[in-house]
Amino acid sequence: MTYLLLFLAFLRVGFFSFGGGLAALPLIEREIVDTYRWLSKPEFLELLALSQLTPGPIAINAATFTGFKVGGMLGAFVATGAFCLPSVLLTLLVVTFLSRFRENPYVAGFLRGLRPALLALLLRVALSVIQDGIHDWFGLLLSITGGALLFFGKIEEIPLLLLGGILGLLWYGWR
């Protein structure tokens, strides 16, 4: 039963995450944290950190992690497969039948309208990440400094995450 729920949840995520892997996050958060409580809020954030530290698309990482936690290897396989299935089917459909589908004005209008929706969803994720990821002034300091370094291209994501982790270890680990 859990496997079926996992399959359906990630199938929904796969079908509605227009705008790439990052766009899948609000849907994943909704399904796995709010609806099914397969991950707690802190675990979801830890998952984001782990996803950045491992190769591959973030949504695949999220699906595998959740599936593994809920149902072991089989769970990981079911969740990842379910997330990829819409991609496989829709690309096949487009290449076979609808190579000009985006020229249809209705389709073009729909796709154009997705942009503000995507943006609203991403802002909502950003808000909840800010709310749950920063607990004290040290976290705030790390976050602002890290953001500035990233913005000015002084550091890349993975070294930044490791650096943040090490500073966290030094600061919080000693108290």
């Binding site: 890290g146 913005f151 930044l160 943040g164 600061w171």
Partner: peptide, 16 residues
């Protein structure tokens, strides 16, 4: 402790 530090910068990565 590691994740508390790492998560603070995950916030920056996501927001950016």
């Amino acid at each position: 402790a590691f994740f508390r530090g790492a998560l603070a910068v995950v916030v920056s990565v996501i927001v950016l």
